[in-house]
């Protein structure tokens, strides 16, 4: 290396995630072109993403396809397949989020039918996935009543990007100390524009609202 030469400063002013954002835009254009609506589903591990999807696959009168992001196992994909929807599993290994390139590869494998609803179950994590646009049309964040009503304040980045926040496991409300109104207030504080629904993915409470939101273009 020649240290006699002075270092030169080069101005870049480039977005760090420019490449991901470009790929995401291409994904969105491809999907929109085929009349497919894509929804990025995010939450902590165990909030009920897969359970809500299984039920949606069984009950929604519209073709559904799913991309399952998981660090290691194919278990969630097996559950979705058993529920009756085409699914592609993406194992991220140590990666804590999906990105637009992984989504594109999964899309090419899955080839969802025109007019279908495509769900992407992101890796269970309330921080990392918020930064990576996949090419979705809407972002849904799930929080369950066993997690604490202050989650939106503890993970504001995630709740700030949500179009819809689903408060799940309301069947457990009699057994846990969870203030639904406080949770709603916290969501609204970090994201005044977010729609909020309360559901029980296992018992079925509130699911008509969820299906209405999905069909309403959300």
């Amino acid at each position: 290396m020649c240290y006699d030469e002075p270092a030169v400063t080069v101005t870049l002013e480039e977005r760090v995630l420019a490449r991901n954002d470009d790929l995401a835009r291409a994904n969105r254009e491809l999907l929109t072109g085929r009349g497919i609506r894509a929804i990025n589903l995010m939450s902590s591990p165990g909030s009920g993403k897969t359970t809500l999807l299984e039920r949606t696959v069984r009950e929604l009168r519209r073709p559904v396809a799913v991309i399952e992001g998981d660090q290691r196992t194919p278990l969630d994909a097996d559950r979705i397949r058993a529920a009756g929807a085409p699914v592609v599993q993406v194992n991220t290994g140590a990666g804590c989020h999906l990105d637009a390139a992984m989504t594109r590869r999964a899309l090419d494998d899955l080839d969802p039918p025109p007019g279908s609803l495509l769900f992407v179950e992101n890796v269970g994590n309330l921080i990392c996935p918020s930064l990576f646009d996949l090419g979705e049309h809407a972002r849904v964040v799930i929080v369950s009543v066993t997690e604490g009503a202050d989650k939106p304040l503890k993970y504001p980045y995630m709740f700030a990007v949500a179009d819809l926040v689903v408060i799940n496991k309301t069947d457990l409300l009699p057994y846990v100390d969870f203030d639904v109104d406080a949770c709603r207030r916290h969501v609204t504080a970090v994201n005044p524009g977010a729609t909020i629904l309360t559901v029980s993915a296992t018992r079925g409470d509130g699911l008509p609202d969820w299906y209405a939101w999905l069909s309403g273009g959300g």
């Binding site: 290396m1 030169v8 101005t11 870049l12 480039e14 977005r15 005044p192």
Partner: peptide, 20 residues
């Protein structure tokens, strides 16, 4: 008031680099 627009804070940019 909550009638606000975020004008800064979402930046994630590579500003510059120094090359030899």
């Amino acid at each position: 008031s909550a009638d606000v627009t975020v004008t800064a804070g979402r930046e994630l940019h590579i500003v510059s680099m120094e090359v030899a």
